[in-house]
Measured scan of single mutants.
Amino acid sequence: KVLVLALYDYQEKSPREVTMKKGDILTLLNSTNKDWWKVEVNGRQGFVPAAYVKVL
């Protein structure tokens, strides 16, 4: 399983997205889209901007 680090806070803007806080460790589920990556955080799955996270 691939983990990513949240570099910035992100507030979800649609039901398909998830909120994350800077420093959160998320599970990367899909990174085929260069702009939006699907992650799991706190038991929820959704998209975050790829530029806001870094693969650990």
Rank of each mutant, 00 (worst) to 15 (best):
K1V: 15
K1G: 15
K1M: 15
K1W: 10
K1E: 12
V2E: 12
V2A: 10
V2N: 14
V2P: 14
L3N: 09
L3I: 07
L3K: 09
L3R: 11
V4F: 06
V4R: 01
V4A: 13
V4N: 01
V4Y: 09
V4P: 00
L5P: 01
L5G: 03
L5V: 11
L5N: 03
A6P: 01
A6S: 06
A6T: 04
L7M: 07
L7V: 10
L7T: 07
L7F: 04
L7G: 02
L7C: 05
L7Y: 04
Y8I: 13
Y8C: 06
D9P: 07
D9F: 04
D9N: 08
D9W: 03
Y10N: 01
Y10V: 01
Y10W: 14
Q11V: 09
Q11N: 10
Q11I: 13
Q11L: 07
Q11C: 06
Q11A: 14
E12K: 11
E12P: 06
E12N: 14
K13G: 11
K13F: 05
K13W: 03
K13H: 12
K13C: 06
K13N: 13
K13S: 14
S14N: 13
S14K: 07
S14D: 13
S14C: 07
S14A: 15
S14V: 06
P15F: 12
P15S: 11
P15A: 14
P15Q: 15
P15T: 10
R16V: 14
R16Q: 15
R16G: 15
E17S: 06
E17L: 04
E17Q: 14
E17D: 08
E17G: 10
V18G: 02
V18E: 01
V18Q: 03
T19A: 08
T19Q: 06
T19D: 05
T19N: 09
T19F: 04
T19Y: 04
T19R: 07
M20Q: 02
M20Y: 02
M20V: 14
M20P: 00
M20T: 04
K21L: 11
K21W: 11
K21Q: 13
K22S: 09
K22W: 04
K22M: 12
K22F: 06
G23N: 09
G23S: 04
G23L: 03
G23V: 00
G23F: 06
G23Q: 02
D24K: 03
D24T: 10
D24W: 08
D24I: 04
I25C: 05
I25L: 09
I25M: 11
I25G: 01
I25Y: 08
I25P: 02
L26P: 02
L26W: 02
L26N: 01
L26Q: 01
T27K: 07
T27P: 10
T27L: 15
T27F: 14
L28F: 03
L28E: 00
L28A: 02
L28G: 01
L28Y: 02
L28V: 11
L28Q: 01
L29Y: 05
L29A: 03
L29C: 05
L29I: 14
L29M: 12
L29N: 03
L29Q: 05
N30S: 12
N30Y: 09
N30Q: 14
N30F: 08
N30V: 12
N30R: 08
S31F: 09
S31D: 15
S31M: 12
T32S: 10
T32L: 10
N33E: 15
N33Y: 11
N33W: 10
N33C: 06
N33Q: 13
K34Q: 10
K34V: 14
K34Y: 08
D35Y: 12
D35S: 13
D35R: 15
D35E: 15
D35I: 13
D35Q: 13
D35P: 03
W36V: 03
W36P: 00
W36A: 03
W36K: 03
W36C: 04
W36F: 13
W36T: 03
W36S: 03
W37L: 06
W37K: 02
W37G: 00
W37R: 02
W37P: 02
K38C: 08
K38L: 13
K38P: 02
K38Q: 15
V39I: 10
V39A: 02
V39T: 02
V39P: 00
V39Q: 00
V39N: 00
E40F: 06
E40Q: 09
E40Y: 08
E40S: 12
E40P: 00
E40V: 08
E40D: 14
V41Q: 14
V41H: 13
V41K: 15
V41D: 07
V41N: 13
N42T: 10
N42K: 12
N42P: 09
G43P: 02
G43Q: 07
G43F: 08
G43I: 04
G43Y: 07
G43C: 06
G43W: 05
R44D: 06
R44W: 04
R44F: 12
R44T: 09
R44A: 09
Q45A: 15
Q45V: 12
Q45R: 08
Q45E: 11
Q45S: 14
Q45F: 14
Q45N: 12
G46Q: 02
G46E: 02
G46H: 02
F47Y: 13
F47V: 08
F47N: 05
F47D: 05
V48L: 02
V48K: 00
V48M: 01
V48G: 00
V48H: 00
V48N: 00
P49A: 02
P49E: 01
P49W: 03
P49C: 02
P49L: 04
A50R: 14
A50K: 10
A50Y: 03
A51E: 15
A51G: 12
A51S: 08
A51H: 15
Y52R: 05
Y52L: 15
Y52Q: 05
Y52I: 08
Y52M: 13
V53I: 08
V53G: 02
V53K: 00
V53S: 01
K54S: 12
K54G: 07
V55W: 06
V55P: 13
V55G: 04
L56D: 05
L56Y: 10
L56P: 04
L56V: 11
L56M: 07
